[in-house]
Simulated scan of single mutants.
Amino acid sequence: MRRGLVHVLAWSLATGAAVTLSWWGVHTVMAGTAYDPPRALPLTAGGATAQEAEPLVPATSRPAPSPSPDPAPRRSRKPSPAPSAPRTSPSPSSSPSPSPTASGRIKSYDTDGGRVVFDIGASSATLVSATPGAGWSMQTWTTASWIRVEFASGADRVSVFCTWHDGPPRVEVGTY
């Protein structure tokens, strides 16, 4: 009995050490990884999600700085008594301007596996976002003439395929 207890104790300690070491390694690698949060489409006044909306500004783009109306400040030997408040001028439009890559209209496709949003232009398209549903995984492929997003859950597959190689962009949704 004592011998069996010693084996169980040794096994428990070895297993605990292995789990701790594995967790520490994964945690160290994942701690430096940053993920962009999923982007949402704007809501309409009725509360339903907009299927077609104005192009969105990507989260990574920054507005261009406006040129300063004041000439460059002159340096003086005498320090100013107190820092002055920065001057702000009202902008003519409070809404952000569309990004330079926004080429058409935003179209959203809801499937059993998740949601795909494309920016569809006259002769090409770009993937704006793809969000898998609960319990689904996602994979994307992008080439110069098509974009494919596939959602998978077990044996179920849903594919959203946008092509524009032989004409204007068109989207096909298939379940298999």
Rank of each mutant, 00 (worst) to 15 (best):
P98G: 03
P98L: 01
S99K: 06
S99E: 10
S99I: 08
P100H: 09
P100G: 14
P100T: 15
P100A: 15
T101Y: 07
T101L: 14
A102T: 09
A102Q: 15
S103A: 07
G104T: 04
R105K: 14
I106T: 15
I106C: 08
K107Q: 13
K107D: 05
K107L: 14
K107M: 13
S108T: 15
T111A: 08
G113E: 11
G113R: 08
G114K: 01
R115Q: 10
R115T: 14
V116A: 07
V117Q: 08
F118I: 03
F118E: 01
I120L: 14
G121I: 00
G121A: 10
A122W: 12
A122P: 01
S124K: 01
S124A: 05
S124E: 05
S124H: 05
S124N: 06
L127R: 02
L127G: 05
V128S: 08
V128Q: 08
V128D: 07
V128A: 01
V128T: 12
S129Y: 05
A130C: 11
T131P: 00
T131V: 13
P132A: 07
P132N: 06
G133V: 02
G133K: 02
A134H: 08
G135F: 06
S137Y: 04
S137K: 12
S137H: 11
M138C: 02
M138F: 01
M138T: 08
Q139D: 14
Q139H: 11
T140S: 09
W141D: 02
W141C: 00
W141P: 00
T142F: 03
T143E: 08
A144Y: 05
A144D: 06
S145I: 03
S145N: 06
S145V: 13
W146H: 10
W146D: 12
I147G: 00
R148S: 08
R148N: 09
R148G: 01
R148C: 00
R148E: 10
V149Y: 02
V149Q: 00
E150Q: 14
E150L: 13
E150M: 11
E150H: 00
E150W: 03
F151E: 10
A152W: 02
S153N: 15
S153H: 14
G154V: 04
A155I: 06
A155Q: 10
A155W: 04
R157I: 07
V158C: 03
V158D: 01
S159A: 10
S159K: 10
S159F: 04
V160N: 13
V160C: 09
V160E: 10
C162V: 05
C162M: 11
T163E: 06
H165W: 12
H165K: 04
D166V: 01
G167L: 12
G167N: 09
G167W: 10
G167S: 12
P168T: 10
P168K: 01
P169Y: 14
R170Q: 13
R170V: 14
V171S: 13
E172W: 01
